[in-house]
Amino acid sequence: MKKPFPPKDLNETSQSGVELIERITPLLTFKEYPKGSKLLHGYGEEAKSYVITEGMFSIYRDADDLMLVSMKGPALTGFSTFAFNNNATFIKTITPCKIAVLAQGEAEKIIDQHNLWKLLALHRGETLRKLFYFHTSLITPTAYEAIRIQLLLLMNEPEEYRLSIPVESYIRQKTLMSRSGIMKILSQLRQGDYINVENGKLISVNKLPDRY
């Protein structure tokens, strides 16, 4: 039987990741970051890892500001790139967030000293599984299919976030498609009663056609 897309846990931290956060949180110093804060993962010796216990944030690709995923704390970022010299992404807070910032070497040292490599390996495995679904959402033959997937992903977001961001803006940040192209398809989907949009926000998605 074909599994539904997107998976319901796509924006959630893995259970192993949550356990890892619980184990290392007492060792860290946290700071409150306001909405709209931008934190780079960085390169080489300046590479950073982040532990987010409260709040919601998005991860973006540094080269073109493509939004990869949005998540809520508790969450980890930058822990899946140990042994690499670059992590060309950054996080941007959607709401105020409570975050601990670690130099990547410091994060590795904590993992090593407290024998947490197994938990980290399990978390990385889950991260790779979710990256597969993310790349699947980008590899689409038509603009409509890309928008269709993003509508389903937006419905999978927490309601408070979904109702705070214009659906067109969400799709544009996730696909880098033109505003006019997105609006044309959204308008036709609304006319066909496939989606319900109020004040630019996505309220509900009915059964979307497979093809446009």
Rank of each mutant, 00 (worst) to 15 (best):
R179W: 15
K174P: 00
L154A: 08
T53L: 01
R162H: 06
Q150G: 04
P96W: 05
T127C: 09
Q104A: 13
Y60D: 02
R129M: 13
D112G: 10
I110A: 04
R124C: 15
M71L: 07
Q113S: 15
I182V: 13
K92Y: 00
R172V: 10
R172S: 05
P166F: 12
R162I: 07
G125C: 14
M177G: 03
K92E: 04
E159A: 00
E157V: 03
L153S: 05
K98G: 01
G73D: 04
E159N: 06
E157S: 02
D64G: 07
E157L: 08
D112E: 15
N85K: 05
W117K: 15
L119K: 12
M56P: 00
V51P: 05
M56H: 07
T81D: 08
K130D: 07
R129E: 15
G73I: 03
E54R: 12
D112Y: 13
R61C: 02
Y50V: 01
L120E: 05
K92T: 01
L102Y: 02
E160H: 09
R148M: 06
S70G: 01
T95I: 02
K92W: 00
Y170N: 01
V167L: 05
G55S: 04
S169C: 03
M177R: 14
K174N: 13
F57L: 08
N156V: 03
V101W: 01
K72F: 00
C97V: 04
M177N: 12
Y133M: 11
P96I: 14
E108W: 07
T140H: 11
M67Q: 11
S70M: 04
I110P: 08
K72G: 04
P166L: 04
L128C: 12
I147N: 02
V101R: 03
Y144V: 02
L116K: 11
R124S: 15
L153E: 13
L138I: 13
A83G: 01
T93V: 06
H114M: 11
V167T: 12
E126G: 10
Y133I: 10
